Amino acid sequence: MSEEHPPVADLPKVELHLHHEGAAPPALIRQLAHEKKIDLRGIFKPDGSYDFRDFAHFLSVYEAASSVLTGPEEFRRLTWAILEQSAENGVVYSETFLSPDFCGGGDVAAWRDYLAAIRDAADEAEAKLGITLRGVVTCVRHFGPDQARRAARCAAETAGDWIVGFGMGGNEGVGKQGDYSWSFDCAREAGLRLTTHAGEFGGPDSVRDAVRVLGVERIGHGVRAIEDADLVHELADRGITLEVCPGSNVVLGLYPSFAAHPIARLRDAGVRVTISTDDPPFFHTTMRREYEMLAKAFGWGAEDFADLNATALRAAFCDEDTRSRVAKRLETS
């Protein structure tokens, strides 16, 4: 292997769109279920991987798997397992989506306990594995606006150098982006930067509302913007960054293959795109695999992925000192 031209899969990586519970290795979830005597056999395939039929069923399996994560110690173990796998795939900086709904039910005091355990594992992983983690608090759209307010209050109470953003995941078919304006305003007033899922199963209008109504600077997925040329131009002009998860989109049936995915067309149109895994064990992917498949589909080389990582680092919600440290890792790794 040439040091001047390493395989793209070996390059250091920045990941911005990772659901914490959705990144749980199935083996860890099975182990926790065994320890707690919880029967989760219905959510696994015979080979031990997660089993789901479609997006709605995926959400059900996701929540069932998360049901064994019942306390701070479980989240400490989960965080270490996630970061160990991310580091193995060359990730040097990651932002993870953390939902207070799964970490104390939206109670601020309980959320602080969970967050302390998560941060403890993250600090250990940074010292031992060289990977930096930051948290983006997310509300869950299909849990409704009232529960989203509780998540936003948790975010606002713990905003700072580690909790750096606020966003929304969940089922795009429930309600409208604007129904959650209070929560996003609360987070913005606390100094948090904003992202939200849109343009995955929702069409271009969901992306437009995310930008114009919620005032986010990043969009989770956002790929269906490609269906509206005016919106593509608007995203490029505004400098909105898309947290694109190609492997997830292919597995969930948005596109039939990596080659059919619009990430390259969006990038060519001047939209800021980045690469992430979303819920990697659910979608049988890793950051290495995303790089390998994109290189194969579009002929992208090391310079392309360096540019994509630079875009991701510019869009990261971390402070400037952290950004500078990560930039050095990208240059020297």
Rank of each mutant, 00 (worst) to 15 (best):
Q85N: 08
E73F: 07
D107K: 15
A110G: 11
G90T: 13
W111S: 10
L98Q: 03
R119K: 15
D120K: 09
A110F: 11
L69H: 13
L115H: 15
V91T: 08
G106P: 01
V108H: 15
I118C: 07
W111D: 08
L98A: 10
G106C: 08
A116H: 13
D120S: 15
L115Q: 10
G105A: 11
Y114S: 08
T96C: 13
G104P: 08
D107W: 11
P100D: 09
S67A: 13
T96Y: 06
N89I: 00
D123I: 07
S99R: 02
L69M: 15
V108R: 15
D113L: 10
A81H: 04
A122L: 03
R76M: 02
A65D: 04
R77N: 05
I118E: 04
G71V: 04
W111I: 06
V108W: 11
L83Y: 03
V92N: 00
G105M: 12
L83Q: 11
A110Y: 04
V91M: 06
G105L: 08
G90K: 09
F75Y: 14
T79G: 02
A122N: 09
F102T: 06
R119E: 14
A65H: 08
T96S: 14
E73T: 07
V91D: 01
R77H: 10
I82H: 03
E74Q: 15
D113V: 06
G104A: 13
L78F: 14
F102V: 05
Q85C: 00
R112G: 14
